[in-house]
């Protein structure tokens, strides 16, 4: 059975079904991360004065700044990959999708060094309330990065982009939907960075 309205837009919504689907999913993601941000606020309100700031000073601002720039770069290369498909340039699409994958890998490697650096100093989620919410938020965000990377690898390999030859519009829509997810992951980090590292 074929999913309807994945290339042409539905008259009532004015959208293709996949785009409506991803936005409803992203709305649920806003509530998921929103709930955790809410938890952060109340844990901070209930913590002894200065406790969160003292534990936050254990984190590496330079590494997180680099990671922020890496993730922003990955967002730009993702949207460039989609634009390349719209310009009928598959080779540029592959290049930009490859750059997006590379950036997401760099992000994870830096995160790995951040985590292991903490573990070497005997800092774990159980060490403090701040560290508990820090590992929860960044861990959940990291899982989203890995999820996005799995889909990106599929679209980057011939098994994924072979659809371009027969259904180019459908493939471009798939990449756009992946892009919407990826920009959301970037958007979450834009808030996580100042909230966890700088305040």
């Amino acid at each position: 059975m074929e999913v309807p309205y994945i290339v042409e837009e539905r008259e009532d919504t004015g959208l293709i079904n996949s785009k409506l689907g991803i936005w409803i999913f992203l709305a649920s993601e806003i509530m998921l991360f929103g709930g955790l941000f809410s938890a952060y606020i109340f844990l901070r309100l209930a913590a002894p004065p200065g406790d969160f700031a003292r534990w936050a000073s254990e984190l590496s601002v330079p590494l997180a700044t680099v990671n922020t720039l890496v993730l922003i770069s990955s967002s730009v290369s993702m949207v460039m990959a989609w634009a390349s498909l719209k310009l009928n340039d598959l080779s540029k699409y592959k290049m930009y999708m490859g750059i997006t994958l590379l950036c997401s890998l760099i992000f994870l490697v830096i995160k790995y060094f951040e985590y292991t650096g903490k573990f070497h100093h005997d800092i774990y989620p159980s060490s403090s309330t701040f560290m508990a919410i820090y590992f929860t938020l960044t861990g959940l965000h990291g899982i989203h990065i890995i999820g996005g990377m799995i889909v990106m690898i599929y679209f980057w390999l011939p098994i994924g982009y072979k659809m371009w030859e027969t259904q180019p519009e459908h493939f471009a829509n798939r990449v756009e939907v992946l892009g919407l997810y990826w920009h959301f992951v970037d958007l979450v980090w834009i808030f996580l960075f100042p909230v966890l590292y700088l305040l």
């Binding site: 919504t13 409506l20 834009i190 700088l198």
Partner: peptide, 27 residues
């Protein structure tokens, strides 16, 4: 201040990369 700057950055990502400024009313 940090939340204002983060909100401006988030608006840029949502508005331009996610095309929200030209998106349909349903969304």
């Amino acid at each position: 201040l940090a939340l204002i700057i983060a909100s401006v950055k988030a608006s840029l990502v949502a508005g331009y990369f996610m095309h929200l400024i030209t998106e349909k009313n349903t969304i």
